[in-house]
Design a protein around this nucleic acid. Sequence first.
DNA 1: AATTCTCATCGTATATTTACGATTGAATCG
DNA 2: CGATTCAATCGTAAATATACGATGAGAATT
Lengths: 109, 109
Amino acid sequence: MGVTKTQVFTDKQNRIADLAKALAHPARVAIIQHLLKEKSCVCGDLVEVLPLAQATVSQHLKELKNIGILHGEINPPRVCYCINETVWQEAKAIFGEIFEPDIEVACCK
Amino acid sequence: MGVTKTQVFTDKQNRIADLAKALAHPARVAIIQHLLKEKSCVCGDLVEVLPLAQATVSQHLKELKNIGILHGEINPPRVCYCINETVWQEAKAIFGEIFEPDIEVACCK
DNA sequence: AATTCTCATCGTATATTTACGATTGAATCG
DNA sequence: CGATTCAATCGTAAATATACGATGAGAATT
């Protein structure tokens, strides 16, 4: 998408954007929902649940790992993905903060 | 970015993804933060605050309008952007729902 | 009527995303 | 060891996102 000018924004704004990106694709939403709900977090199970190719799922998992929301544990011959509780709480706090304030509707009057 | 296969996901998953996209760019985060904090919601003010060209800001505003988070009122010779309270509450509820449950750490043990 | 002001849109260059088949790597199983 | 299984990575095609200059549209001002 062209280069986002991350340098001109605050670290926090960039972090919010990154965390939001984790949820900015329905497949990643589905992955996260699955991990929150099911006990199983094996990659192969996700591939079965999602109507996407294995390579695609793996790519989404990689992205979620990069953002930090997930981490994977090798559990031969499988790989097990878990939600990173620390980052999850960070996201929870950040989004909570954004949506906290009551809206000033005192605009454009 | 290549075609997202929206058809194979639920409406809710797609809606979550769309709402997350609103926050998935630091410029849009900055816009929303500004509108939440400041009383001014005039487009021109946003252009001054953001270190981006006017055309770029307008593009981000358009995207936020498409998602529904903002709506603009023409107030000649200016245009005034406001947060759409209904959609904002929808987003608040949706993100609240996602982050609500305590995490099952009982994974990969 | 001409100028000015504000904002949207067009056109475009470039980078990134999404998706998938094919291949590779690592580890277990026969 | 050879075969199989699981998952990451490579390579690639196509769509989309980001950013900006330039232009256009609409209204108010001169």
